[in-house]
Design a protein around this nucleic acid. Sequence first.
DNA 1: TCAAAAGTGTTTGTACTACACCCATGC
DNA 2: GCATGGGTGTAGTACAAACACTTTTGA
Lengths: 235, 235
Amino acid sequence: MRSFYALYRMAKAFHQYKNPSISVDIVLFGYHESRLSILLINRKEEPYADRWTLPGGFLRMEETLLQTCRRILKEKTGFSKLYLEQLFSFDALHRDPRRRVISIAYYGLINSFYYQLVLSKIANDIKWCSVHHLPPLGFDHREIYKLALRRLRDKILYFPIGFELLHGEFTLPELHDLYECILDRTLDRRNFRKKMLDASYILPTGKKKSGLQHRHPDLYKFNRDIDPHHFKINI
Amino acid sequence: MRSFYALYRMAKAFHQYKNPSISVDIVLFGYHESRLSILLINRKEEPYADRWTLPGGFLRMEETLLQTCRRILKEKTGFSKLYLEQLFSFDALHRDPRRRVISIAYYGLINSFYYQLVLSKIANDIKWCSVHHLPPLGFDHREIYKLALRRLRDKILYFPIGFELLHGEFTLPELHDLYECILDRTLDRRNFRKKMLDASYILPTGKKKSGLQHRHPDLYKFNRDIDPHHFKINI
DNA sequence: TCAAAAGTGTTTGTACTACACCCATGC
DNA sequence: GCATGGGTGTAGTACAAACACTTTTGA
């Protein structure tokens, strides 16, 4: 009888603690050679075996969500220092066919292609994929990606996140190209330069970038003395 | 032995499914007589017994998060049709002293004071409380409230959520006062009127509001033909 | 010296700000 | 008729948009 009672207590506890699994999914944007890409993983296992999905994984009880994101990205990219921001929680009842999973999506920015991608055991393949040629994605990951891109486009207009995608020192044409890639439209070169400099958001380093074919452009750096929360710019 | 085996399986399942509890907490804004308020509940039980907190509750397995919000608000206010938007997920490890609870916060807007508040069994008291005189709040609810207010203030500048707080027909002075309450600053009456009308965001009904002491102001209504996602206004 | 990309200033238009007087109503 | 709040227009300013030529460099 004692074991039945223990079973009963366990069942009760089980029921009480029965909760959805919590996962994170990450839209990791990278920028390289005038292309905005996201990191995709080809799944080895069901569901969605052989389909491309966003990197993601399950929360552990002793982790915060951000820590989960960083652990997963470290496993897959080797990179640990990057900009991450919470995006939205996706909670449709059957978004994962296995069981109830609530996914809290994050998006991140990385100066991509610096680090070798690591192929984990649960994946067939991992790659950077241009946002202009995305394959069909598993789960509701296309929806998550679309929201992330919208958020990134909105945010870059009034918050200096773009710099997370460039090196410590960069040229104005590089910054300009980055903005055009993210926003997917052309921006007047002269006005762009003027706004960036007037906001004293970037500072000249006095150096020039060499090794290029034509005129050597000036190098700038991010002005870290500006409070990004009070940064105000209209591209 | 059979019961031990069952116990073992159960324990394994328990472990596998051990996940944080998921709750929602709701910052419900109401507006009445030139005051912006939020709905607060005085807890009867530990933790934070006798302290004021945001309305909230635990997700059930068969519910979406929005359904959880609506169930909770229906229990406490009797009101079911209201504007709700996901705000942020709060996941600090010990934000709830009982166990790991991840709270997905929502904020909502209600044409308040229409509906009688319902005192549930787990509460000592429930009330609308002016945002200018908030008591200390339990859990991390002050942080949640602050984020909600910031979001509301940001959003009202470019999205027509303010109308959710007014009746179907309203006067321009009422709308003006609502914006001033939410933003907590004065706005030029003439410019405000001009912008609202130029955006054809509100439409004259041809009627006037009577029963007032002085000149009877014109009544307007929300222009539902405008796609709120393309609504653009700068207050 | 030529081709390609980087650097620079001015003009024009639009949109926000600031501001003061008349009108309708109830008492 | 008077006190109170509602309705209306204009002038000034600031910022964003549009736009073309000169400079630097490698080949």
